[in-house]
Design a protein around this nucleic acid. Sequence first.
DNA 1: TCCCAATGTTGACAACGACAACATAAAGTA
DNA 2: TACTTTATGTTGTCGTTGTCAACATTGGGA
Lengths: 202, 202
Amino acid sequence: MSTSRRQRTGYHHGDLRASLLRAASELVEKKGIDGLSLRNVARRAGVSHNAPYRHFPSRSALLAAIAAAGFERFRAELEAAERAGGLRARGEAYVHFALARPELFRLMFGPAVEGDAQLREQAGLAFGGLRQAITSHAGQEAPFAALAAWALVHGLSHLLLDRRITGAMMGNPRDPAQLRRFVGEVLGSVRFAVAPPAQRSA
Amino acid sequence: MSTSRRQRTGYHHGDLRASLLRAASELVEKKGIDGLSLRNVARRAGVSHNAPYRHFPSRSALLAAIAAAGFERFRAELEAAERAGGLRARGEAYVHFALARPELFRLMFGPAVEGDAQLREQAGLAFGGLRQAITSHAGQEAPFAALAAWALVHGLSHLLLDRRITGAMMGNPRDPAQLRRFVGEVLGSVRFAVAPPAQRSA
DNA sequence: TCCCAATGTTGACAACGACAACATAAAGTA
DNA sequence: TACTTTATGTTGTCGTTGTCAACATTGGGA
């Protein structure tokens, strides 16, 4: 670690902002969101404890930047999965992302960046893509079904993330094949109504 | 605030543990989980900054105790709702609880108490009740459908909590009638398959 | 009555976020 | 080239926090 284009001079770093983001992302994933401290990030980047303030106005701003990068990657992975395997693959990719980078996922959808309007918008894109995908799949608008699908994969992600689902039904969530099978079973146990729900059911 | 059976003597509090829990719960809901500090809790309870350590070995232990009480209440509310209005009412109560006490809900299902085995078990009860309810409703075991139902309401709770769902579809989530209608629409847009899913669908 | 265990207090320490003041280097301008 | 401005990094400091250690007070059982 701690190798990149550094030591331009003894004083100026050369690419500190990127180094800080990289160090911070690693720390978040290793120690959790609460375990991230600006001073530790600065230490890892090899600068003084106050240098980060030249690039991020506050700790939460650094977290927001990490979340923004996360959403960018999230969106790309979801779209790639859908191109490759359709709607079902998109749902699996959603859960897979959450399990592969649990702390990043928690950060992206958690309260740490709640106030950030730009991030809210980025998160909305993840839903917008799903909605569009469902619409094109069903041949018509199905807003509530799209929302239900989103809630389903989102909730599944959270429950797996927090180890609320264990036992025989779910094997090892880290095994992609087992995860794929499990997500398939769960998603396969529901049918989404594309027509407006006239009468309610269980 | 700050009234209860206190001032037994000038020295001993009399019921400090309960006072700490109450003050801490209020603080968590007001300032968020990260905004809770042991010293602030102690201040509110009118004791010195180290008194809480006689009742909780650490900050996270205090949070775990709050979460435990939350799960107790959660379970009671879910069961009461189901008795009154069946399975659909249980789902609505789930979401309603999350929106009525957002920070508590985040605490209960978040990473702050992740390592606590007892809490994991308590959370499992919420699912156990749902599973049993679905089984009795469908007349047979439907483990994956129960899991999907859980994930659906859990994900819906989180998305609403984090204000990820806004706009025309959802009105004001704080209005119980609108929330009820919205949850009904979403839950109504899916059908749960009680038989093992032979063929997959969207 | 005496003692002791439970309970609360005071004091300390290191880590943290944030602010202010200062230092250095790089880029622009003459 | 020489001077100036501005971006970037450093040092010093403050108040707050979690946690540990040592000490004080009290009430209940022997």
